[in-house]
């Protein structure tokens, strides 16, 4: 049991725990926006820890560049997904408005409607 093995084990366990937390979160949370909050944990941090574990186990340049590519594409595409899902949820009234503390978008929309009259 070397130091590298312990590091790999820790990183993989962090990723597995985040995946489990995301699963429990999307079952327990009440609406789309709160589930969106739970869903992004394994998508970014879980993937990052697992990729670091791969680089620790197989430290070559080919693996490192591919890993950087994977993380780059994930960081480029996941915010787009989250943005589109959140926007679509807001527009189609899948947001629990009684749970919101502050709704800036609603205020902006009503301001815009008034100035447009």
């Amino acid at each position: 049991m070397s130091a590298a093995e312990i590091a790999v084990a820790l990183l993989i366990l962090v990723s597995a725990f985040l995946s489990m937390a995301a699963g429990i979160g999307i079952v327990r949370f009440p609406d789309v926006l709160t589930r969106l909050h739970a869903a992004t944990k394994p998508q970014v941090l879980g993937l990052a820890t697992v990729l670091v574990a791969i680089v620790v186990q197989v430290p070559t340049w080919g693996v490192l560049t591919t890993v950087v590519l994977v993380m780059t594409f994930q960081l480029l595409t996941q915010p787009m997904t989250a943005h589109m899902l959140g926007r679509s949820a807001y527009r189609s009234d899948h947001v629990r408005r009684d749970l919101l503390i502050e709704d800036d978008l609603d205020r902006d929309i009503s301001d815009h409607d008034q100035s447009g009259q």
């Binding site: 790999v8 990183l11 993989i12 990723s15 597995a16 985040l18 995946s19 995301a22 699963g23 999307i26 869903a39 394994p42 998508q43 879980g46 993937l47 697992v50 990729l51 574990a53 791969i54 620790v56 186990q57 197989v58």
Partner: peptide, 15 residues
């Protein structure tokens, strides 16, 4: 989320 978990599990298996 299921896809993200699948990606993480693939990576963990490789490591």
């Amino acid at each position: 989320v299921l896809l993200a978990i699948a990606i993480c599990a693939l990576g963990a298996e490789m490591a």
